[in-house]
Amino acid sequence: MKHLLSISDLNAMQAISILDTASELARISDGQVKKLPTLRGRTIVNLFAEDSTRTRISFEAAAKRLSADVINFSAKGSSLSKGESLKDTAQTLQAMGADAVVIRHSASGAAQRLADLEWMSGSVINAGDGTHEHPSQALLDAYTIRKHLGKGSRDLQGVRVAIVGDILHSRVARSNVLLLTLLGAQVVLVAPPTLLPVGVESWPVTISYDFDAVIAQVDVVMMLRVQQERMSDLFFPNSREYSRYFGLNSERMSKMSAQAIVMHPGPMIRGLEISADVADSARSVIVEQVSNGVNVRMAILYVLLAGGPLEMVTN
């Protein structure tokens, strides 16, 4: 495996080996060793052509814990904002000897273009491309779900997950649908019909417009951010109505089954898709998702750049 562009590049075994590697790395870093020498001397470029603080610092922390040199290249103030093409930027990075590029871009398919056109020879890791995919987010979500609900299993067989909100514009939803179903989970998408893509019928999921009918039936409720500007594009009448039908508040949360968890990829809009008390409740694993993110991204870098998954160290 050279690149991570889409979850569809992975088979179940590869996905599980990334999760297992993340578990192993978490176990090591929980102990004495905070930093591994694995990627010493390697250069990883964070090419962020779209604003994103959390994903960038998560990848940066992951790379640094593996001792890689990290170069951050963000849109603001860079040549990308001055109209330089992705191609020229990639060739510049290549000339600087980047071993891997972590790319966040507003254009769907940007990561694949970077990989396919051989503008550069290093690994390409998709850190979110337009409304297409965000594979590292899905992997950290699967990791978090497995940790809480996996019952010791390596996959997610039998786990029921509701993904709620703006599916149409969500790269997190697309990657999660592919990965969670690949690992055996059952996924239900909950959204107003305006925020589901035409063609969603072909996805391996069930669809519901009724959050209340779904919420008691699932083990995981994954809330998605809803951008305010969607209102002006007529996707829903106003934020109050959206919250009423598709927001997660404490009243709705009370219908969830005993062990069920609440997730959110961030950044949250408290009061719109999720109320503050839910976000801060005991069911919420939102902060844990962030810390798991570093371990999972370490695992991704490890698998792509260190030549394969980390073997389990037997106790």
Partner: peptide, 15 residues
């Protein structure tokens, strides 16, 4: 084209 492929690729559909 808006349809199954655009849904998967996250490209805005032309119905």
């Amino acid at each position: 084209n808006e349809g199954e492929v655009s849904a998967k690729l996250g490209l805005k559909g032309w119905p």
